[in-house]
Structure formats: structure tokens, C-alpha cells
Design a protein around this nucleic acid. Structure first.
Length: 293
DNA sequence: CAAGGCTCCTGATAGC
DNA sequence: TGCTATCAGGAGCCTT
């Protein structure tokens, strides 16, 4: 499942292989993949065709590319991508056979042999075009203006994060998954960071002291940077491929998916608990539940 | 406004 | 063998 590190790998791939190229043709093969583009597939294709892709940006799990606007200070339109659970952005040879779940194809007006493909089995992800937030130099799409900066963003407001945690009346894992509070954290890295911090997922955020929440933030950054260090150096070909099952990210997980396996700190069998229609993995000894849970 | 639940989707897997 | 149930889960949307 793509979370921040995986999306960052994709961003780098897009920046390397696609930025600067001009779109010649767009094929939308599944309407659900552009459902955030309210004007529909024909409009999506028409607006994107002829435009040149600018610098690839990322905030949390969102990735976008402003379309270059000749003679203007700021971009007038940005191409937004979210991978959802199973989405992939692939740079493939034009003659490569279609993937089973190919949803969108973008061909370019140059002589390079590659094209951009959006492949997504479960269609939770998608592409869309949006006007940027006025005055934003990076072309931040207006529809993701509510997404908080992510913990790897130099402008992430750490003091505001701590304050917000104390003010919230919720539990710590819910807070970590709230993209308007801190973005880029999904179920996997939430469990990993909580395990490193020895925090139970149902710990009320209001009980976190400033040092404890600072430690949590440090662990979030560490686990993301470690994943990035492994996955971010793995692609060196035309193939920009990220999905959670590719293997090089989950090899080093300490908590996620380790039910009944020994805790790497204390040896106690790890547990899995149904949680918000998904799962939470934790060590029952290292991560003691709060009172009343 | 904040918090939490529901829902979209497809394929792998388990169970009968 | 073949069917059904369950699980994976990001985030918009709706209700409370």
C-alpha cells in the first residue's frame, strides 16, 4: 500500500522520466480512474493534450505536476495523482503490452520510446486536473489544500502538530491517519511508528506529553526515511513501479503483518486487532493499552 | 466544527 | 470442484 515513501519514489521517477515532456495523446480506459475530474474523461483528455508537464511535487500521498504555462508566472492547471491502494504510475515502452488493469495512457509528442501509464487494480486511486491554489508557486491543486504538510516537509509545523494532538479528543492512531493533521502516514507506517514509540494505538492523544509526541514524530520520520533509503534507490530503469507488495519495503517491518511472530524487542507474540475496518498490529507487552481499553 | 462510521473496488484466500 | 465470506484500506462524504 503506497504511503509517503512509496509515493516519493514515484515522484522521483516522474521527475526523471516524464517532466518536461509534452502530451500528445490521452486515453482514459476506465472512467473511475478520473472520477475526481468532474468534467469527465473527454474533458480530461482534451485539457491535458498539448500541455507540457512541469516539476513533480508531492504532499503526503498526493503527487502532482503543474502544467507549464508559457509567459505566465504561475501554472494555471495541475495534474493530480493519487495511487489509492493499488495504483501504479509506470513509464513503459510504447509497444509494451497493456497491463491487465491499465486505466489511463498518456503518450508524448517526442521521439522518446516511452509513455506514462496509470495502472490500478482496485481503482481507489486516480488522476485529475485542477486549478492551483491562487498564488501557490508549486501549483498545489485546490482540492488538496486541506491536506497537511507531511513530516518530511521542511515547512512541517512541529509545534502546531503537538498542540493539535493535545487539543484533539481522539486516539493516537486515528490522529496519525488524519491527513489534515499530518499527511503521508497510512496503516503500515502508523503501526511501525507506534511500535517504535511503544505506544498503544488507542492511546488518547490528549495524554501525550510533549516529549512523547516529539518522540513519536521522530519515529515516523525515521521509519519513512529508512523505507525511502531502501526503496528510493531501487529503481534505476525506465520502470517506475510502486506497489506495497513489491517486497523491498515490507522486508524490514517490525509490526505490520507480524501477528503471532515474536516482538523484535521483547519476544512476546505480536497481536492483531480489528480496528476501523482494518487491522492494528502491536506488541501487547511493549505497547500497553491505556486504562479502560 | 469535530469525531467517527460508511462506502467505493477487485483479487487472494479460507472455509464449507 | 465451486461457491460464498472475509480481508486488504485511502479518503471523500455523511451523520451525529
Amino acid at each position: 500500500m503506497p504511503e509517503l515513501p512509496e509515493v516519493e519514489v514515484v515522484r522521483r521517477g516522474v521527475a526523471q522520466w516524464v517532466s518536461g515532456r509534452t502530451v500528445a495523446d490521452v486515453a482514459v480506459l476506465h472512467p473511475r480512474a478520473i472520477r475526481r475530474h468532474l468534467a469527465g474523461p473527454d474533458d480530461f483528455a482534451a485539457q491535458l493534450t498539448g500541455r507540457t508537464l512541469g516539476t513533480a511535487h508531492r504532499r503526503g500521498k498526493y503527487l502532482w505536476v503543474p502544467l507549464e504555462a508559457a509567459g505566465q508566472d504561475a501554472p494555471d492547471l495541475s495534474l493530480l495523482a493519487h495511487l489509492g491502494m493499488s495504483g501504479q504510475l509506470l513509464v513503459q515502452p510504447r509497444e509494451a503490452p497493456d497491463e491487465k488493469h491499465l486505466r489511463i495512457r498518456v503518450r508524448f509528442a517526442d521521439t522518446l520510446p516511452t509513455e506514462l501509464r496509470f495502472v490500478d487494480q482496485r481503482t481507489f486511486g486516480g488522476l485529475s486536473l485542477h486549478e492551483p491554489v491562487p498564488g501557490n508557486p508549486d501549483g498545489l491543486p485546490d482540492v488538496i489544500a486541506h491536506i497537511a504538510r507531511d513530516p518530511l516537509d521542511p515547512a512541517f509545523d512541529e509545534a502546531a502538530f503537538h498542540t493539535a494532538l493535545r487539543r484533539r479528543r481522539t486516539t493516537v492512531k486515528r490522529a496519525l491517519l488524519d491527513q489534515s493533521l499530518i499527511s503521508g502516514v497510512g496503516n503500515i507506517y502508523a503501526d511501525e511508528a507506534l511500535w517504535r514509540s511503544r505506544l498503544h494505538y488507542d492511546r488518547p492523544t490528549a495524554t501525550l506529553t510533549r516529549p512523547r509526541s516529539a518522540e513519536l514524530l521522530t519515529h515516523i520520520r525515521e521509519v519513512m526515511n529508512e523505507a525511502l533509503a531502501v526503496g528510493g534507490t531501487s529503481f534505476d530503469s525506465l520502470y517506475v513501479n510502486v506497489n506495497g507488495e513489491s517486497g523491498y519495503f515490507d522486508r524490514s517491518l517490525d509490526a505490520y503483518g507480524r501477528e503471532d511472530e515474536p516482538c523484535r524487542r521483547c519476544g512476546t507474540p505480536m497481536r492483531r486487532r480489528p480496528w476501523m475496518n482494518r487491522s492494528s498490529y502491536f506488541c501487547p507487552r511493549c505497547q500497553r493499552p491505556p486504562r479502560g481499553v
